[in-house]
C-alpha cells in the first residue's frame, strides 16, 4: 500500500518480531525506555520493593513517551458496507 502522508519514504520498514518498525524509531524507543526504566530503578530509595516499583513506573512512562512521539507503522481502516 502506498502512503504519501507519512514522513518516512516508502518501503523503509523492517520486520522485527512479527511487526514493522523503523530502525531510527526503534533505537529511539529502546534508548527512551531503557533510560526511564533503569533510571527510575537507580534513583529509587534503596528500600525493596521501591526500586522495582519505580522501575515499573519508569517503564510505563517510557512506553507512553515512545507511543506519543512514534507513529505506528500501520494503516488501519474499517471496511465499510460489508456488514452481515
Amino acid at each position: 500500500m502506498e502512503n504519501k502522508s507519512d514522513h518516512h519514504s516508502q518501503n523503509e520498514y523492517i520486520e522485527v518480531w512479527e511487526d514493522l518498525v523503523h530502525i531510527k524509531d526503534l533505537i529511539l524507543s529502546l534508548i527512551i525506555c531503557t533510560v526511564t526504566t533503569l533510571g527510575a530503578y537507580l534513583l529509587a530509595p534503596n528500600d525493596p520493593p521501591k526500586p522495582l516499583i519505580f522501575g515499573l513506573i519508569g517503564a510505563v512512562i517510557g512506553f507512553v513517551v515512545s507511543s506519543i512521539i512514534i507513529k505506528p507503522k500501520r494503516n488501519f481502516r474499517y471496511l465499510e458496507g460489508e456488514e452481515e
Binding site: 522485527v16 518480531w17 511487526d19 514493522l20 518498525v21 523503523h22 524509531d25 526503534l26 529511539l28 524507543s29 529502546l30 527512551i32 525506555c33 531503557t34 526511564t36 526504566t37 533503569l38 530503578y41 522501575g55 515499573l56 519508569g58 517503564a59 510505563v60 517510557g62 512506553f63 515512545s66 507511543s67 512514534i70 507513529k71 505506528p72 507503522k73 500501520r74 488501519f76
Partner: peptide
C-alpha cells in the same frame, strides 16, 4: 492498539524491563 500503540514502544518497554 493498532492505531495508537507503535511496535517500537512495545519492544522498548520489553527491552527496558529486561535491562532492569
Amino acid at each position: 492498539v493498532f492505531r495508537f500503540i507503535p511496535h517500537e514502544a512495545m519492544l522498548g518497554l520489553f527491552f527496558g524491563l529486561v535491562m532492569m
